[in-house]
């Protein structure tokens, strides 16, 4: 701050102190308020609209997949391809070997099937599917406990992906690298469907509602080790 500036400031303050510019005050307050609102507006736009766009990145699946179509052709529903192994573990997304069981040759001839054959079957490569509902590494999730023991429907957590005709865009958080399906579709954390978000609170809420092993000494809810590893 230069000395001259300070001097003028002091002068103006002195005059202000004398109440000489009293008449100016209301209009000043108005302009100041407008600036406040302006700042508020800009930042809210940035925070609610721009920020989520920057935070989430989109990734393409290797090729498209029609769940509805496949459901029509299998006998055992979801479990035809997403099945339990003998040791109780869940197979998750099918491996190449499984797909070839039916797709030993090109059937439908759709663009995606051709990609599948030319790029993966021909080279004996596993398809690097992006898993929407993959829980992070710190979580132990037992499909057996939910689907078999608790007899839950796949829809509860996975929504109607089984009836979809094409795969949705895979979005992931740039910082945390979580899938948006885990992290929550809505930036405000609002939830319409049970499958909109799969964060810890969602798991614990359901466990609480159903009184699943609420035996933690610390929280009187589920002990941490029920889901964490």
């Amino acid at each position: 701050m230069s000395a001259s500036e300070e001097k003028t400031k002091e002068v103006s303050e002195e005059t202000a102190g004398k109440g000489a510019d009293k008449s100016k005050e209301p209009s000043n307050a108005g302009i100041i308020f407008i600036f406040f609102v302006l700042g508020l507006g800009v930042s809210i736009m940035v925070g609610w609209i721009l920020f989520p766009k920057v935070l989430y990145s989109q990734k393409e699946q290797p090729f498209d997949f029609n769940h509805e179509n496949h459901m029509l052709m299998v006998d055992n529903g979801c479990q035809s391809c997403h099945f339990f192994r003998e040791d109780g573990t869940f197979s998750g997304a099918p491996k190449l070997e499984q797909c070839i069981d039916c797709h030993y040759d090109i059937h439908g001839g759709s663009e995606d099937e051709i990609i599948f054959h030319e790029q993966y079957v021909a080279n004996n490569l596993e398809v690097p599917w992006l898993i929407y509902y993959k829980q992070p590494n710190c979580v132990f999730f037992s499909h057996a406990a939910h689907v078999i023991n608790a007899e839950m429907d796949c829809r509860t957590c996975h929504g109607d992906i089984g009836e979809s005709t094409s795969l949705p865009v895979y979005e992931y958080n740039r910082l945390s690298s979580y899938s948006r399906n885990i992290w929550g579709q809505n930036i405000a954390g609002l939830k319409r469907n049970t499958w909109d978000r799969m964060k810890m609170s969602d798991c614990s809420d359901c466990h609480q509602r159903n009184n699943v092993n609420q035996n933690s000494v610390q929280t009187l809810k589920g002990p941490c080790f029920v889901c964490h590893k």
């Binding site: 810890m200 609170s201 614990s204 610390q218 929280t219 009187l220 809810k221």
Partner: peptide, 8 residues
């Protein structure tokens, strides 16, 4: 109160 650890 909406934190996981909260108990009444």
């Amino acid at each position: 109160p909406f934190a996981f650890e909260w108990i009444w």
